[in-house]
Write a protein that binds this DNA or RNA. Structure first.
Lengths: 205, 205
DNA sequence: TTATAAAGTTAGACTAGTCTAACTTTAAAT
DNA sequence: ATTTAAAGTTAGACTAGTCTAACTTTATAA
């Protein structure tokens, strides 16, 4: 629910069911159990919303997920495209000490390997929207990649092939009016063309 | 089943149920499902036994458990008394790559932090019974601790308090005929008395 | 303003896993 | 060899979670 929520924090039952691989009646029945636990604000026939404590619970799971991803990359040598599926399993571990130790060994990181913020132990999550899209920057500017708006496997592999990662410094050379694609330089690469679709998903500062 | 098996590789349904916190009818019904998967050799009213493939499946779970325990101690700084409960959760992670990476980072260890053997990736498990108990050794002998016959939390804390760990070298000074207790020296400790109960559980070479 | 399509809910069936109570088998003891 | 207590199994009920089909509500659009 947390990750599917729109700007108002709402999800439709059907969208949730689709994403969970479950029918809408199943969503209905589960959501009412979550409402009984005060995790979901449930109003019949209305879009679903998490309560404050639901959002906190979600943030704490996301915290475990992202700490794990960071640990897998930094301490175990996995690639950023490999860690999501592993972390989805490890995040179910109950032991707070386990994640506290990861946090400490990592030096209390604030973002995961894809640049997404790691919620605090209290369940506070900083908003990523303060970052700007690469596609909004102008030719001539020099920017640094600090996050990804989405991080599907295909996208991560696309970036790997081009040697683009967090902290890569890009110089914007040109923008095509027609399709919004950008031509950029970075590291030892010259005149690399990135489509608008890609530039929209690269967050920079 | 694997860990409760006696010398003949058998467990009673009631013992299994007790250890799992489940009634005997539940054991019955699960065991028949495992028999359908050829993991358990099931004969009505007879003690339960794993099949060869059941033993292999069990060994592979134990492998994940013990690799995790070793990783928690060696790479994450946990104490040997803390790792069992965490590893019980982490062992459920599916990703073979995750455990393969632990194995590699640990340098392919053969025993866990309690001296118990780590099964091979093929599911072969070496027998610990080749080790001798401390209680079978004679006064005057010098021995090294290489394993524990059991590793309950209480026992591990008992050993922590006395500074006894794997690889501790002991000199046996005296054995009491009456209760079988041993007096030993090790490190900078002198004349430490270990009861027969303790000496039975310390495996040495 | 009403009709209608899309979304959500209720009803009822099914499965997996658990339980207790009643019954059967095994094996230990007279 | 027979009795009997312990262990195991079967029967049947219950819960949680899922589904499809039928029904209700919402909101869009004529």
């Amino acid at each position: 629910m947390f990750s599917l929520s729109d700007a108002e924090g709402s999800v439709s039952a059907s969208e949730l069911g689709r994403s969970l691989g479950v029918s809408t009646p199943s969503v209905s029945s589960m959501v009412r159990k979550l409402a009984a636990l005060d995790l979901v604000a449930y109003v019949k026939y209305q879009p679903l919303k998490l309560t404050a404590s639901g959002r906190k619970a979600a943030a704490l799971v996301i915290r475990k997920h992202r700490l794990t991803e960071m640990f897998l990359v930094e301490k175990m040598g996995f690639g950023w495209e490999e860690v999501h599926v592993i972390a989805e399993q490890v995040e179910h571990v109950k032991s707070p000490a386990f994640f506290a130790r990861m946090d400490k060994l990592l030096g209390y990181p604030t973002v995961d390997p894809h640049g997404s913020p790691i919620p605090s132990p209290e369940g506070t999550i900083t908003d990523l929207r303060k970052h700007q899209k690469l596609s909004d920057r102008q030719p001539g500017e020099k920017v640094r990649i600090v996050g990804l708006a989405h991080s599907s496997n295909d996208f991560l592999l696309y970036l790997n092939e081009r040697g683009i990662a967090l902290k890569t410094a890009l110089t914007i050379l040109r923008r095509e009016i027609y399709d919004g694609s950008l031509t950029v330089n970075y590291d030892d690469k010259k005149d690399v063309v990135l489509s608008k679709v890609v530039a929209d998903k690269l967050l920079v500062e």
